[in-house]
Amino acid sequence: MNWTWFYRMGSPKWFYQTTSKMLPILLAVTASLLLVGLVWGLGFAPQDAKQGNSFRIIYLHVPASLLALAGYFLMAIAGAIGLIWRMKLSYMVMKCAAPLGAVLTFIALFTGAVWGKPTWGSYWVWDARVTSMLILLFLYLGVLALGSAFQSQDVANKASAILALVGTVNIPIIYKSVDWWFTLHQPSTIKFTEAPSMHPDMFHPLLVMILGFYCFYAVALCLAVRVEILNRERRSQWVRDVIGQADKGNRGVFR
């Protein structure tokens, strides 16, 4: 089998040039999806029979939580690829995914807390789902901290990758927590094996928001990895060409 495509994908230069072309389109798609999803979810989706209007927080809470979990897998897989094939780009992706995931986990916890107040009567409960999400936040912060705790970049990369891989144990625990324990948190709205437990009028805007969050994740990750590439590859000729071509007034983000 021909593996050249795999190694080409691992080249920072290839990544940088490809994302230069893709980012403007992806950014436009992200902005439109989020705008449509938010207006639809906040203004046009019907109220929940039991929770009233507070349920509209779901349009941020569920997509952010999903991406916090999916982003953790992505970070761990990037770390594994780095450990096995020693790809520089892979470690850069891992490093940039950590703060991104931490912020998304924060959004999930925060929106959950303000949703909990009118629904459960409390901003915070030590419920299995909420607690395992808090552990996810600490795992992200741990990977972030380990990445800058060593003098050698190589050792830092390896340590972060191992922590990221060990931490994946937490992901199925979060996902299954509402089934395994008696929790205050409501059961999953979306399941891989069943139809959604939600009316289509409420579910469609949620799907738009989830798609929008996936695109947003891709945009934010690409932007961060591109800066990391410029920073680490600044001695290489192609980076100097990219920067050299731009004059002082014209150094757009997508160059």
Partner: peptide
């Protein structure tokens, strides 16, 4: 509650 969640996110 809803608008706080939206603005902070």
């Amino acid at each position: 509650y809803v608008w706080t969640a939206v603005v902070v996110s």
